[in-house]
Design a binder for these strands. Structure first.
Lengths: 203, 203
DNA sequence: GCTTCGACTACACAAGCGTATAGTCTGCTG
DNA sequence: CAGCAGACTATACGCTTGTGTAGTCGAAGC
């Protein structure tokens, strides 16, 4: 990322807003605080973005653009390893992503990730012996949420793991844990059948 | 749950606070709004809880007590089916749970869920052929986060699934999706080995 | 050289916030 | 009956908030 002093004031305000929105939430962050963090007057924030709500929307749009670019890069580069997808490095914007998802502002972003996940799922399904029990988009929705959970709950995951998941050591440990979890089914075939029977009986 | 008019004013205030904190976040919710939702004056909120911060802490404590009770019931009743654990029905408090987790207030709650998950994981490990690659507490942390992701991101999961995950139909669909996902490894043994080699090489 | 326009600041304003205080009402205790 | 404690309300006080307005400054265009 560029040095702060190299960015235009508009970009500096947006970056500061994403950090403070992520830290304190939309209501918790103040225009004056954002302006100070960006090194400008509070009036300039209004001059460039019009209102606090519009500033938030600009941040959302910026995040979508950013993630889309990261997605394209990852798709072109790593060849679509989905273990990496669970460790999305949105750099300094993780907190903002979490807030946006919980506040409900990141809906288009989530939907796009589901679309990407469904694509990959369809590829895996072709090499699968038994027919899946539920529609691909449903499984894609659930596994997308699970992939995002590491980012959204990174604070708690880090505390429970004893290492910051976004540090180099934490990243390696997390990757190994994900590989282990993803390569070992938590339910045996008979357990799955029993669980399904339980659902049918329950209805 | 009891009817609102049967509860003491203190309990009504706490319930209203949990709903509004969950809906609008800590800063977004107002004491006056909470008081109105509870049908009392704003002064009474202060009389019972002292401050907004203390009210939040009382809500956190109430949630911990509530989840602990639900956990005990589920453990005693269903026999420890962990598919059910991913569909924690915290009733009308789902939104509050999500906020608390993202705001960082629900740390003890998350930790307790990890402890419970680790316990169950240890049981599964005993019937596992190969030795796990990473420590149980790490895997427990990751799978706890994944289990919670459905609740935290329920809005997005529901939208992507086309059904509200907390409705009866959505619950069944979600359960079947989880059983399918949990009984089919996303990574084959060789894929896992390749991924692990990739990590080693990368270091 | 004068005008124009956009970046930018300083200051003012009304509204809403959490908090504080004074007081009322009710039921219990001696 | 008096006294008191606790639930509860009404109202007020600073303070911060988002927003609005007036004005400065510097560069580009004619």
């Amino acid at each position: 990322m560029a040095e702060p002093e190299d960015l235009t004031a508009r970009a500096r305000i947006r970056d500061a807003a994403m950090q403070l929105f992520g830290e304190h939430g939309f209501e918790g962050a103040t225009i004056r605080g954002i302006a100070e963090a960006a090194g400008v007057s509070s009036g300039l924030v209004r001059h460039h973005f019009g209102s606090k709500q519009a500033l938030l929307e600009a941040c959302d749009a910026h995040l979508v653009k950013l993630i889309r670019r990261l997605n394209d890069e990852a798709l072109a580069g790593a060849g679509g390893n989905h273990v990496a997808a669970a460790r999305i490095a949105v750099g300094p914007y993780q907190a903002y992503l979490s807030r946006a998802l919980v506040d409900g502002g990141a809906a288009p972003l989530f939907d796009e990730m589901v679309r990407l996940g469904a694509q990959w799922l369809a590829a895996v399904d072709r090499t699968r012996p038994d027919a899946p029990d539920v529609a691909p988009e449903v499984r894609a929705a659930v596994s997308t949420a699970m992939a995002l959970s590491i980012t959204v709950l990174h604070e708690h995951v880090s505390r429970a793991m004893g290492v910051d998941v976004f540090s180099p050591e934490g990243d390696v440990l997390l990757a190994r844990a994900l590989i282990d979890l993803y390569s070992h089914p938590m339910l045996s075939a008979e357990d799955a059948r029993k669980a399904l029977d339980g659902i049918e009986r329950h209805r």
